[in-house]
Simulated assay, not measured.
Amino acid sequence: MTAPVIEISDASKTYDAGLPALDRVSLTVQAGEALAVLGPSGSGKSTLLNMITGLDKPTSGQVTVNGIRVDRLSEAGSAKYRRERIGMVFQFFNLLDDLTVIDNVLLPAQLAGMPTARARARAAELLSYLRIDRHSRAYPGRLSGGERQRVAVARALMNRPPLLLADEPTGALDTASGEEVRRLLAELNQDGQTIVLVTHDITLAEACATRTIELTDGRIVRDTAAVAG
């Protein structure tokens, strides 16, 4: 059996000697899974996500992603790891409004030093795959919320990351755009992309997650596989 994409072992995080934001969490995510992380505000969802991205380190325990001990990385090592191994999709898109769609998508490749011709070919492939190629020369402000989130997904997938993280990806969208993004994430997972999404949107979890965990007070209180069919 291949190694898991994410392996978190007995990880805790405490800030300023208060109650733990995460309390001895152990979690394994296999390649091809789509994991939804649910829980109320303050349950530890953001802390878990930040530990997976290397933005935060556990007070104790281990975090391994794609064979890399993320909890041991230096600041520079963490930045390189995020560029090469993680794709991030955010609630408010985080697109640069003064760049065109294709230039937004190209940014991760430029930061990673990908040759220009290969980067442009990859960007064109993604824009076509995500059905937004007709908007390649448009600016984000001219697009709908759903279209902007597709651009954000294309940018996140630019460097072929083993793991796509989505933080409340439907939180800023209207109903129709939210449904569009739910379908998109489900399609990406069906095509083999490993996804971890943090959300309050139960409909999103039901639509595209193969597995759901629920956090309460920094602990996993429920871990449920989706029912096939």
Rank of each mutant, 00 (worst) to 15 (best):
M114V: 06
P108T: 06
G67V: 12
A79R: 15
Q110P: 05
Q110A: 10
A117V: 15
V101E: 13
E84P: 03
E75H: 11
R122K: 13
M88L: 14
V89T: 08
A124S: 13
A119P: 02
A117C: 08
S74H: 00
G67C: 07
L127K: 05
A121V: 08
L127T: 11
G87S: 11
V101N: 13
L126R: 02
L95C: 02
F93M: 08
L73T: 09
D103F: 08
T100H: 00
T100Q: 05
A121C: 07
A124Y: 04
Q91F: 08
F93Q: 09
V101Y: 09
A121W: 03
R85D: 14
N94Y: 09
L99A: 00
G77S: 11
R118A: 15
R118D: 14
F92R: 06
P108N: 12
R118P: 10
T100V: 00
E75R: 13
Q110S: 10
T100R: 06
V70N: 02
D103E: 15
L73V: 06
M114E: 05
I68F: 09
M88R: 10
A117K: 14
L111C: 08
G87L: 13
K80S: 11
V101D: 12
V105Q: 07
N104L: 12
R118G: 08
L99K: 03
L106N: 05
L107N: 10
L127H: 04
I102R: 14
G113K: 02
N94W: 04
V70W: 03
F90I: 14
D98H: 09
S74M: 02
F92M: 11
E75I: 14
R82I: 04
F90Y: 11
Y81K: 11
L96W: 04
T100E: 04
R120S: 05
P115N: 10
S78F: 08
